[in-house]
Amino acid sequence: MYLQDLIAKLNEYWAGQGCLILQGYDLEVGAGTFNPATFLRVLGPEPWKAAYVEPSRRPTDGRYGDNPNRLQHYYQYQVILKPSPGEVQDHYLDSLRYLGIKLEEHDVRFVEDDWESPTLGAAGLGWEVWLDGMEITQFTYFQQCGSLELSPISVELTYGIERICMYIQDKDSIFDVLWNKDITYRDVHRQGEYEFSHYNFNIADIDLHFKLFDLYEKECLAILFFPGVRSVLPAYDYVLKCSHVFNMLDARGAISVTERVGYITRVRNIARRCAEQYVAIREEMGFPLLKETTAGAV
């Protein structure tokens, strides 16, 4: 199975489970969790079911395209289900069967892994899912997001699609994964891995990024407190920008241990303000999705 077929299959499967099939967000994010379709939608009482591919950036994980298992840009397949359905583990296992993995012949394990994102003020309990010893999915029941306690609880499934593809295609390197029958992951992303590793580690202007962090943070607060118009989505974009700029500074080694905590707190604070504002605005709107829930049973 090619990478693009794997994505198509997952879309098909989760659409069948009643999920909206969305797209990755159009800003740099570290994971699918940052997409407003997860971060904001898990807040408040409204139900939500969505799945999407999230192109994700982790500047510090760059290895110049030399390491067969590590990338600074990769893809997550993200499923978010709110409230978490009773049989979600079984639905997840069925999704692996849908990809053609005969589970009876493999060792699938749910291994304890509690997840926390200090920048988003988010935390959850769950597992990493192992397929014959390899981690292929993060499975998390969100307990907190934007520093707010959640109710109801959402469950997030994050598939590492490159890894699953390596497994299915029996490849030892991500770069050897076939995207379709002619083109490999290397053809698509190797140059980017090399160039961005250089940029992230050696070229990115440190002063510029420190300035950008301050400017983005200021803009976020300006939007949240703009007199007369209540909005949150544009403000949340600047939380994402701050988070990415912070990751860049981290990759450049520009942030000391003590400063780190300070920057993380600043991002968490604006993320919390956005979360609060989002819930307030949705409440004013009467939590519209409470009435017209998305179709389909999970």
Binding site: P68, N69, E104, E105, H106, D107, V108, R109, L131, D132, G133, M134, Y167, D172
Partner: peptide, 24 residues
């Protein structure tokens, strides 16, 4: 490896691949 399923060639091959990456 203590597997939670009867062992098959997949289980062996998968775990061997994982440990190779880890040891690398």
């Amino acid at each position: 490896v203590v597997s939670n399923n009867p062992p098959t060639p997949h289980v062996t091959a998968g775990n061997e691949r994982v440990i190779a990456a880890r040891l690398n």
